[in-house]
Nucleic acid binder design. Sequence first.
RNA 1: GCGGGUGUAGCUCAAUGGUAGAGCGUCGGCCUUCCAAGCCGAAUGUGAGGGUUCGAUUCCCUUCACCCGCUCCA
Length: 548
Amino acid sequence: MSAQTSQQTVKSMDKIVALCRRRGFLFQSSEIYGGLNGFWDYGPMGVELKRNIKQAWWHDMVTSHNELLTPPGAPGPYAMVGVDTTIIMHPQVWKVSGHYDLFHDMMVDCRETKRRYRYDQVVGRWVQYGGQRIFVTTDEEGPQTEQDLLQRALKFFKLRSKNAEELQWDGPVQPLKCVQDFSVVLGPDAKSLGTLTQPREFNLMFKTYVGALAGEENVAFLRPETAQGIFVNFKNVLDSTRVKIPFGIAQIGKSFRNEITPRYFTFRSREFEQMEIEFFCHPKESQQWYKYWRDRRFQWYVSLGLDSQRLRLREHGAEELSHYSTGTADIEYAFPFLPPGKFGELEGIAHRGDFDLRSHMEGKLDPNTRPLQVELGPDGKPRWRGSGKDLTYRDEVTGERYVPHVVEPSAGADRAALAFLCEAYDEDQAPDEKGNPQNRVVMRFHPRLAPIKVAVFPLVKKEGMVEIARDIYGQLKKHANVFYDEKGAIGRRYRRQDEVGTPFCITVDGQTLEDRTVTIRDRDTLRQWRVKIDDCWSEIEKHLQPTH
RNA sequence: GCGGGUGUAGCUCAAUGGUAGAGCGUCGGCCUUCCAAGCCGAAUGUGAGGGUUCGAUUCCCUUCACCCGCUCCA
């Protein structure tokens, strides 16, 4: 007896979402009150899946790492430690990191074109023709700006290019901020005047208040990333653990972003969990470490079963990189909810140079400067002051002192869970008791990730099978998440386990009563084999080991 | 935030301005020696709020959520 694996199962997101709900993987947050956009709860199966993902990550990246050896592909040996830092941090952290400025964008919407623009990126120029004076705008940058303004002004006044000199320009190109009256503003893509809304603040960081009194001086933010908790503890870790560069600090924790458009199931949630490593190394070695982590992280997903054509590693192009980054790669998955050919980010591995540690020393750096310089405010002082603490590293052997460079593998735990759910979903044909093929829904999780590792059944409820099965269940409970079921037909019990991805089912049958052996049934192949009751766990356990 | 679509039981779907049904699933019982079988029984509902009406799941308004397209995505 074997299952016909269908390679061409259509991964329908609707079916996956329905299964997640039906079997207790994921629910909408606050569902009985109508749900809350961008927030999701993990059910009894989902919490096990996600915990297994986080556990596998922590085990594979941190606790099982041997700092005495050079792992394959690494430039040398290195140490790994972890931290668990607070969600609410000193507000200055986010000002210095750049999140505060970036996340407090003022935006303007165009009522005509339904487009949205960064208030500070819209520029324009006063122009007059035929007694009408308007402020024509564009969001084109650089040399395109003047050209675009001219084209748009000509078009608005219905003039030909050769009549360009009839336009009376008034003053230089200036930001939209300089204009009070929006009724004479021509939006960057609009055909008529006055279609832009007044600028509105977008709070991409969740704001809260520390202390019982709510006032501006008590404002704090829920972290939009876990990374800063690591950077601000860099010196603490150095001073308390005797780690030496190169080393990494890992952290798993919740982060919060007030996404404008949460969408695609849990893919873009407002509350989500990150698994981040900040890896500190010598500037001269940082490129090698970047390549090591990029490849290592990709292999991690592969080792847990995300090995289909849907997974890819994509190196960012030069134009896509932050000014301070010398390399960034995304690990991406072709989620079923995305259009064909589109991929969604699971993890980004970024070479961040010395940007973060220097920022927390000197103050917010201007990412558009090269080499990086502290961003100055109107008063000529740093826009946001750093901690002033010395975050340089001194090599005690060579005596060299430097700001370490950072390689940052930043993974989304919820996105990983979603990818593993999508990857695992499969439909195939399995025979019923009369031998006729029946459709079967099966979650082909890697055994390390499966919420339930093994289910135990008595074949029928008689002749002592129940007692033996219950005893096996109790024994296995010591080792893993096990499920027991004695109700109804055996086939139905198998199918239920298939739907939550339980890789193995142990069944006590008539022969067990004679020779103390049971059958183990494999989820994917439907193959069954007999083992002694006492060997059950070792038989299962060997499938739960990391494969790399 | 804008535009379009959707919203009836856990799921798939029916029905009606006048007591909301079915199949599957779930639960209980019987039966059952390996893949959703059979028999008996049971529970569960119109996303939320308001309006019109003697009476609204149905008509109207608002809202919420989900899906698609824009926008956004450090």
